[in-house]
Design a protein around this nucleic acid. Structure first.
Lengths: 341, 341
DNA sequence: TCCTTGGTTGAAAGCGCTTACAAATATTAT
DNA sequence: ATAATATTTGTAAGCGCTTTCAACCAAGGA
């Protein structure tokens, strides 16, 4: 027996304040066509009895609930959990709540979750992460995103989807990896290994930065130095153990992988950074758990999230029309013990 | 211009199927008083046009939206993000969605978020984490929780709140730390340091386990060996550097702190586990990022979350009345390189 | 054949709120 | 003072759904 409190509604307030429900509604919604006197009178009653409008009834009329849906593939990942944190914090500052949805990496999961959120009448959708499948294959089909965007604006964080009413916020990963790789080269490293766990949008950009840096420094690109790994530290370590090709530096697409490389070095008795330099990505918590601590590229999730939300509000509240479809946020490198610079 | 699709409603379906809206409603809600023939007819139309009931309208009548509110102090913490992940996964399997809310550690934040979620008409509330303030002080006032519980059942994960309609799921932290400490003692450690970052409900239980183990092994409890630290690795390391008292083992209330101790040992050139053994708590991702890898107590968040949700469903759907107010889940230790056992 | 019974279906009354429109009141111009 | 206008307030019609209650219909018993 869930003893629900008898909840007071707009009629009660209207009666107690000796006005009509329309007036109460106007006061609650801050309409300007209410005299100061009645506004005060009504507010007094509202404050006294502690009235909150019923969101369902509001939603029925307005078809909005000041709620945005956030879809992440998983939240057990520092990048994602941080993103969710910053997104929801910023959204709340604008008076919006968020419904969280962990969809997994598969396409049909994402589609299902998008539909579910749409059926909840969210005011907008935020998709965090790549639009690619977890198995490394590029998902051609982002149609479901464009379809959702017909109902509600869609914001993609760290992914690239083209479409009307779809807005993307990404990192300048190409430049970040380009700079990191260049710096390694300038410090004498020649056999730089690129470790990646996926073919996601951002992984592809990172690879492009790596490739470009080598090219610009006249270092031939070697297929053997590019390795696809499983995104778990021990798996990376073991995979590197099998690897016969010598290398003197590692650029990884995330910190887990980088720590895996560090573990490999430790297991083989290789000195870091003297014999092998390592650069991670994301500058997550584990970057400072290991020893030596990890040099890592900070992608400023906070900025990305804040800017995403700012644009979201601009679109759904101010109905602004000339919002850029895609913006890029710069990254920067945080130097620690796994590099000499 | 957010071009909303013209959404089809129950009247459309009724018209297309040549029945009344009442019948459509019955079909949608799986009422048993519909003849098989009409059910098929209606379902055919629904499938064809892809109709989903408007949640607001449903909510208005039923006053529920199959949604539960989850409040965590922060999500940028492995424990919390994992908890949220498991909770929402399990909830979804029962057809419930969740609204996430990061309240911060302060009391008034929590109160505000509770009220906000209640105003959204969630069917239940899940509070993750302690009912204590972040500054280490025990918050006497859990009244707001009991008050919320008058409206909706409240489930506390890893915290202890007494009250009608309040259900708690906790770890057996006392036993976990008791066992770990005992094991250290049995392996010859005598000066065991207890590192904690808060006075939270679970921290207090952990301390009790530590104390009890010492007592049962006739080792005097020394105040100097109990240290309150800031929950960041480097801060812990630095704080230990200041510490003059010799010790040969560390029991930490979470893995960050334990890694801080490891960093201290590394900085001082102390061998781990030979000279100092270290036991962490939570068995989080960073436990395997460091070297040697961290022995840590696994608190089975997954189990806790699943059981919480199971009980939640039992309460709100099956209206079961004899649900235990509080259950405890055992922990177990995962041995790695920072201990000799 | 007529009446009862049980199973199906439909009509209509909310649920609590927003808002267009009309009514009432206050303000200003004539 | 009266008319015209501006401002404030109230009336009532939805929004899309659930659900009670009454109406309907087929089948079986009297």
């Amino acid at each position: 027996m869930s003893m629900k409190k008898d909840v007071i509604n707009i009629y009660d307030i209207a009666e107690m304040a000796h006005v009509s429900i329309a007036t109460v509604s106007r006061v609650v919604n801050g309409s300007d066509k209410v005299s100061e006197k009645t506004r005060k009178k009504v507010m007094a009653v509202i404050d006294e009895v502690g009235y909150t409008p019923n969101v369902f009834a509001q939603g029925l009329g307005l078809n909005t609930m000041h709620t945005v849906g956030i879809i992440v593939p998983t939240i057990s990942d520092l990048y994602m959990s941080n993103a969710v944190y910053y997104l929801q914090e910023k959204l709340r500052s604008y008076g919006y709540d968020c419904i969280l949805s962990c969809s997994g990496f598969e396409l049909d999961g994402k589609q299902r979750h998008v539909n579910m959120l749409l059926s909840k009448h969210v005011d907008a959708l935020i998709l965090v992460g790549s639009t690619y499948a977890g198995n490394g294959e590029h998902v051609q089909d982002t149609d479901y995103i464009r379809e959702a965007a017909e109902t509600v604006p869609v914001f993609v964080v760290n992914g690239n989807v083209q479409g009307n009413n779809v807005y993307c916020t990404v990192n300048d990963d190409v430049k970040a990896v380009y700079d990191a790789t260049s710096k390694l080269i300038e410090h004498g490293h020649e056999r730089i290994m690129f470790l990646t766990d996926s073919q996601s949008y951002s992984a592809i950009k990172k690879r492009k930065g790596y490739e470009q840096a080598l090219e610009d420094h006249d270092i031939p690109l070697r297929a053997e130095l590019e390795m696809h790994v499983i995104n778990r530290m021990h798996a990376v370590r073991d995979q590197l153990m099998e690897c016969k090709i010598p290398f003197d530096a590692v650029v990884a697409t995330n910190d887990e992988i980088a720590v895996g490389a560090l573990k490999y070095a430790f297991a083989k008795g290789i000195m870091v950074p003297e014999e092998i330099a390592i650069v991670g990505y994301n500058n997550s918590g584990i970057a400072i758990a290991c020893e030596p601590e990890l040099t890592s590229i900070d992608n400023h999730i906070e900025d990305i999230c804040y800017q995403t939300v700012d644009r979201l509000i601009a679109v759904i509240e101010k109905n602004e029309t000339k919002i850029e479809r895609k913006i890029a946020i710069p990254c920067d490198m945080v130097s620690r013990g796994t590099t000499e610079f």
